[in-house]
Write a protein that binds this DNA or RNA. Structure first.
Lengths: 160, 160
DNA sequence: TTGCTGGCTTAGTAATGGCATAGCCAGCAA
DNA sequence: TTGCTGGCTATGCCATTACTAAGCCAGCAA
């Protein structure tokens, strides 16, 4: 089984170019820590309050504080003050569009973990709310074809 | 815009359960470091030799050595001796099925980075080798529907 | 037998990420 | 005015990840 991507054009051979401006590397500068991923997981699960983030992601409060600040800084989360009538002002952290767009990455990671790191296919699963069927991450091309791992090539981006 | 997943059954409310055996957390124990992701990226790009991993992932040799050992240990990579006629024995590191299955996660991360961290949509893109169209990561349900971020629910896994 | 190359390992050190414990401040409630 | 709660911040420390520089060994090539 072939597990590698085919290189095309100036990208072949691999030794001819360097991935110094690779966006995977850039993305990892923001979310490479375990705690950042877990904070984001909780954000997708609907957590918005400081204490809940710390408790549910199982990180200490100082770590929760610095991750939340960093993620706000990077534009992944928004800090939002609000006040219920008769109550004091509270802060909530909510996903921005940029943060929300990272969701497929989390799903892909969960899917992989469910397959390879758990005897029963994982404790929880995502389902399509319309039809109740389990949800998977898939590679699909713009023409609508489902793309297998052996049908991929890497090319210099068109619009550059 | 709603960015959170709906909880169903015993998972609602979020505070009623803890994600201690979450497979995202388990996955992160293996690949939470930047260097692990970059080593895997190079494996997908076809790199197999020690020096090439270190150079192309831009990590020091000691770091490359320990990541490669860990990834072999975890069953993501296989170390394989081989010998060309008239040459000395060489070692190659190749992706196992388990390692290769992490590819969608890398693609999802690259896609996100291309969208949000680069002015031109990223330096390189993946294409479908059959039709040449750009490849995307998509959430799809088992019934074949394309699933939007607001059509997701989280449920206890059926087969448990 | 000497050198060169590939594939590492060792040593020493700096930076980062993590923890536990404790404290601070605002703003209600009494 | 005292206490309580939510939402943090400060301090001190340990573990992990990372770097650079150097060394080591196998096995050809000369």
């Amino acid at each position: 089984m072939k597990h590698t991507v085919r290189m095309t054009g100036s990208l072949d051979p691999r030794s001819s170019w360097e991935a110094s401006n690779c966006t995977i590397a850039k993305a990892l500068e923001i979310v490479s820590t375990r705690s950042a991923f877990l904070i984001l997981r909780e954000a997708f699960f609907g957590t918005t309050r400081f204490d809940d983030f710390a408790e549910r992601a199982r990180v200490s409060e100082p770590v929760a504080a610095s991750r939340l600040h960093e993620l706000v800084q990077e534009g992944m989360l928004e800090r939002e003050d609000y006040r219920e009538p008769g109550k004091r002002t509270r802060q909530h952290y909510r996903l921005t569009d940029k943060g929300a767009d990272l969701f497929p990455t989390l799903v892909a990671l969960m899917q992989w973990g469910n397959r390879w790191l758990d005897d029963h296919g994982g404790p929880v699963e995502l389902r399509h709310s319309d039809c109740g069927q389990p949800v998977e991450v898939q590679l699909t091309c713009a023409a609508g074809h489902r793309v297998g791992p052996d049908e991929l090539e890497l090319a210099v981006h068109h619009q550059r």
